Amino acid sequence: MRVNNSGTATGIHKSSGTGKAKDKATASTGKSRDSVQVTDSASLREKAQVMLADMSPVRMERIEEIRDALENGTYPQDSHKVATQIVANALAEHPWS
């Protein structure tokens, strides 16, 4: 998918080659082109399985408890605490300096 300067997607384009020729052309014309690489889902799934295999059983039990509580609607939520953490994370990522 290609995204133009206005942020809208214009379609899906398949890339061929290594892009080295594009880099040389970009350097000579002064125009730059952005590119995106998408990792296939099988590779991501394999990485996730490796990470899960390395997790301790205690952590997996806690994750399952939280997942079950979320599915049942019984997970306690403190909206003030959630909002505070969202703002804190946003400020940490983009400080106002």
Rank of each mutant, 00 (worst) to 15 (best):
residue 3 V to P: 01
residue 75 Y to N: 03
residue 8 T to A: 14
residue 12 I to K: 05
residue 91 L to C: 09
residue 89 N to V: 05
residue 8 T to N: 11
residue 57 P to T: 08
residue 78 D to W: 04
residue 80 H to G: 13
residue 40 D to C: 08
residue 20 K to S: 15
residue 55 M to K: 01
residue 67 R to S: 04
residue 7 G to C: 03
residue 38 V to G: 02
residue 90 A to G: 08
residue 25 A to G: 06
residue 55 M to Q: 09
residue 32 S to M: 11
residue 40 D to M: 07
residue 11 G to E: 02
residue 53 A to W: 01
residue 85 Q to M: 14
residue 52 L to F: 01
residue 40 D to H: 04
residue 88 A to L: 12
residue 45 R to L: 12
residue 50 V to I: 06
residue 20 K to L: 15
residue 71 E to P: 00
residue 29 T to Y: 01
residue 2 R to Y: 09
residue 15 S to C: 15
residue 78 D to G: 07
residue 11 G to Y: 02
residue 45 R to S: 10
residue 50 V to L: 08
residue 73 G to E: 10
residue 25 A to E: 14
residue 6 S to V: 13
residue 13 H to R: 09
residue 47 K to L: 10
residue 64 E to S: 04
residue 52 L to Y: 00
residue 49 Q to L: 10
residue 70 L to C: 07
residue 6 S to H: 08
residue 84 T to Y: 09
residue 24 K to Y: 04
residue 90 A to K: 07
residue 88 A to C: 03
residue 14 K to L: 13
residue 28 S to W: 01
residue 49 Q to F: 00
residue 88 A to Y: 07
residue 75 Y to Q: 09
residue 65 E to Y: 00
residue 96 W to I: 15
residue 43 S to V: 14
residue 74 T to A: 01
residue 56 S to K: 07
residue 60 M to F: 00
residue 35 S to M: 05
residue 74 T to P: 02
residue 82 V to L: 12
residue 63 I to L: 14
residue 93 E to V: 13
residue 18 T to C: 12
residue 33 R to E: 11
residue 76 P to A: 05
residue 35 S to E: 08
residue 19 G to K: 06
residue 97 S to F: 14
